[in-house]
Deep mutational scan, measured.
Amino acid sequence: MDALKSAGRALIRSPSLAKQSWGGGGRHRKLPENWTDTRETLLEGMLFSLKYLGMTLVEQPKGEELSAAAIKRIVATAKASGKKLQKVTLKVSPRGIILTDNLTNQLIENVSIYRISYCTADKMHDKVFAYIAQSQHNQSLECHAFLCTKRKMAQAVTLTVAQAFKVAFEFWQVSKEEKEKRDKASQEGGDVLGARQDCTPPLKSLVATGNLLDLEETAKAPLSTVSANTTNMDEVPRPQALSGSSVVWELDDGLDEAFSRLAQSRTNPQVLDTGLTAQDMHYAQCLSPVDWDKPDSSGTEQDDLFSF
């Protein structure tokens, strides 16, 4: 819950932080000083300027060897085509990944977070970031790969997607708890209302004896509580940590079903599988986004697919 609360507080303090972009060759504004600060901008989305290598189908939802083989196929196909790589912007948030063309600003792909089953910074092609997700059109699994400016960037994108998945799962947990509370309150309110109706004398007997209905007592009954809980029953509950912020979080049926399955089948359902080692994760978390744009010590960066 700490990640969720800190993310909400950060967004309320400075929503404009989320509009910064990394990996864009110096076009961005001043960047936060450390990885923790940038992680807090996830709610509205972190932007990464990358190059799209392509996509291939895979048979399993996750796995280092599986993704490595898929990336190898994608890279080989991209090299064989001889075409310049498409420059894209990857927007990562707890909602998922939005992929747009840098030149036309046209939407290429919009992947809900619950469809993503794996992401990684490839070991062999260490400047490549990739994720595996279920197609929104059918049940097939797709591996999408992107060329980053350097290994640090690939690791940073991988960690960002993993963190977005974690925050999304926490949102789901909060929403589920809130819905259970509202359902319980609604049920209790309905029981109270039913009890009051059972003990209320029939209207005919009131008229016969000349008694008047006590409207004041009726007004004191917990009807307002019942209506408050039943009027918006169809509205999706939102985490309290975000009250007053500009973010509107809505959970669709697909996300609810997917996270429910994860909660039942996995020990740590909030953790998205990645190909990063503990050492890689520690190294990337210690980086400032400013470091992502620094040239690798191995030599001059080449803006070309064939540089790796």
Rank of each mutant, 00 (worst) to 15 (best):
L4M: 14
L4S: 02
G8S: 09
L11T: 09
L11F: 15
I12D: 10
I12M: 15
R13K: 07
R13M: 14
S14Y: 04
P15A: 00
P15S: 08
S16C: 14
K19I: 11
K19A: 09
Q20M: 13
Q20N: 15
Q20V: 11
G25P: 12
R27N: 14
H28E: 10
H28W: 07
E33S: 09
R39C: 06
T41V: 12
L42S: 11
L42M: 13
L43S: 14
E44A: 13
M46Y: 10
M46S: 12
S49I: 11
S49W: 02
L50M: 04
K51W: 01
K51I: 02
Y52L: 05
G54M: 01
G54H: 00
T56A: 04
T56H: 01
E59Y: 04
E64R: 10
E65I: 07
L66K: 02
I71K: 01
R73V: 13
R73W: 05
I74C: 12
I74Q: 01
V75R: 00
V75L: 11
V75C: 00
V75S: 01
A78Y: 12
A80I: 08
G82T: 01
Q86G: 08
K87V: 11
K87S: 15
V88N: 01
T89L: 14
K91Q: 10
R95H: 04
I97M: 15
I98Q: 08
D101V: 04
N102D: 14
L103A: 05
T104F: 01
T104E: 05
N105M: 13
L107V: 11
V111F: 05
I113A: 03
Y114C: 06
Y114H: 12
D122N: 00
D126R: 00
D126L: 00
V128L: 00
F129Q: 00
A130L: 01
Y131P: 00
A133D: 09
Q134A: 03
Q136M: 13
Q136S: 14
N138D: 15
Q139E: 12
S140F: 08
H144W: 14
A145L: 00
A145H: 00
L147T: 01
T149I: 14
K152N: 02
K152T: 14
K152E: 14
A154C: 05
Q155C: 07
V157Q: 00
L159V: 06
L159A: 12
V161K: 00
A162Q: 13
A162E: 04
A162N: 02
F165V: 03
F165G: 02
K166P: 03
A168T: 05
A168R: 04
Q173N: 06
V174N: 04
S175L: 02
K176Y: 04
K176G: 05
E180L: 15
E180R: 15
E180W: 09
K181H: 14
K181C: 12
S186H: 01
S186K: 02
S186E: 07
Q187V: 01
E188V: 02
E188S: 06
G190S: 05
D191V: 09
T200A: 11
P202K: 10
L203N: 03
S205Y: 07
S205A: 11
A208K: 06
A208N: 07
G210N: 06
N211P: 07
L212K: 10
L212I: 09
D214R: 12
L215V: 12
L215K: 15
L215P: 08
E216S: 14
T218P: 11
S224E: 13
T225M: 13
T225H: 08
S227Y: 09
A228C: 10
N229D: 11
N232T: 08
M233R: 08
M233K: 12
E235M: 04
R238H: 06
Q240C: 04
A241H: 05
S243F: 09
G244P: 06
S246K: 06
V247F: 15
V248W: 06
W249I: 06
E250T: 14
E250H: 07
D253P: 02
D253K: 06
L255V: 13
D256Y: 03
E257P: 06
F259D: 02
L262T: 04
L262V: 04
L262Q: 02
Q264K: 11
Q264H: 03
T267Q: 09
T267C: 08
N268T: 08
N268E: 07
Q270L: 03
Q270C: 01
L276S: 02
L276W: 05
M281V: 11
H282G: 08
Q285V: 06
Q285H: 15
L287D: 07
S288D: 03
S288Q: 04
P289A: 01
V290S: 07
D291V: 11
P295G: 14
S297W: 08
G299F: 08
T300G: 12
T300S: 13
Q302W: 05
D304M: 09
L305Y: 05
F306I: 01
